[in-house]
């Protein structure tokens, strides 16, 4: 009797484990199956065409690929000095005490605010500011666009990159740092020549993970990017990312090919973020063992 129950228990555990694995596989499979029609209708050109015009039956994902790449890399660029500074600040200068606690709490607060609220704030505060800047620069003052979306994204990803960076910096063995100090190195020299080389791959992983976040972020971007399906002409132009075009057009997709084109973009988004994430996590796991 007991034997049977043990068997049953183990079986149900194994079953649950398989269920989760199957769930992930089924997700990938569903996306593939439902995006087949667009690949059948247009072929691989779906990924490379520069025109997205559902009324004419033209589906090219290139504008969104470029939009996603531009916004997420710009966001990374904007956020890098800040996240690196926070990581060094909390990992080296103040790794305990009240100041550290304050910064940790505020960054986790920042990470906890729902993304739709970032978008809302961006729409009402950041967009007018960017519009003023654009008037000064003499470009068309849309206010919304790639630049604004990158700004919002950079605020949103700072906490992620910073917390991973802080963790890997605090992993640096103190013997190494002490040895450098004993040789007469200044604090910056220790950071530059001991901590950075040691934590390099971990910091890189943190950057990768926040890139994955930026690529997949939907709401905040959708609200401030301007939703324009043309190939982006400048950094200030309204555009669309892969995530934002799905959010905008999914419920409007009338024909099967249209819907399948959007699902194809979802598949692409899924694959790209998955690859970036797995590499990032692999690096971190290797470091922390």
């Amino acid at each position: 009797m007991t034997f049977n129950r043990d068997k049953l228990f183990e079986r149900s555990l194994t079953f649950t484990a398989w269920l989760v694995v199957i769930l992930v596989a089924a997700m990938c499979l569903s996306l593939m199956v439902y995006s087949l029609p667009v690949f059948r209708a247009i072929g691989w050109g779906f990924l490379f065409h520069r025109v997205w015009d559902p009324l004419e039956g033209k589906f090219g994902a290139m504008p969104f690929l470029v939009g996603t790449l531009l916004t997420s890399f710009l966001a990374l660029l904007f956020s890098l000095p800040f996240s690196l500074a926070i990581a060094i600040f909390l990992g080296e200068y103040f790794n305990s005490g009240k100041i550290a606690l304050f910064f940790q709490n505020t960054t986790s607060l920042l990470a906890g605010i729902p993304s739709v609220i970032y978008g809302f704030w961006g729409l009402f505060v950041l967009v007018p500011l960017v519009r003023k800047l654009e008037i000064k620069l003499g470009v068309l003052p849309y206010g919304v666009g790639i630049f604004t979306a990158s700004l919002i994204l950079s605020i949103m990803i700072i906490p992620y990159a910073a917390s991973v960076g802080r963790e890997v910096i605090s992993l640096v063995p103190s013997e190494l740092k002490e040895a450098a100090y004993a040789l007469g190195a200044t604090r910056w020299e220790v950071i530059r020549h001991v901590i950075f080389p040691y934590a390099r791959s971990g910091i890189f992983a943190g950057i990768l993970l926040s890139l994955g976040r930026a690529i997949g972020e939907t709401m905040a971007v959708t609200m401030v990017i301007g939703n324009n399906n043309q190939f982006p002409s400048s950094l200030f132009a309204p555009a669309n990312t892969m995530a934002s075009v799905i959010a905008n057009e999914f419920t409007e997709a009338t024909s099967d090919v249209y819907l399948s084109a959007l699902i194809g973009i979802a598949l692409l988004l899924f694959l790209v973020t998955t690859v970036i994430n797995i590499i990032g996590r692999y690096i971190i796991k290797k470091l922390s063992v």
Binding site: L31, L209, A243
Partner: peptide, 8 residues
């Protein structure tokens, strides 16, 4: 799953 974008 941890890294899958919520829109997906």
């Amino acid at each position: 799953l941890q890294g899958t974008p919520s829109i997906v």
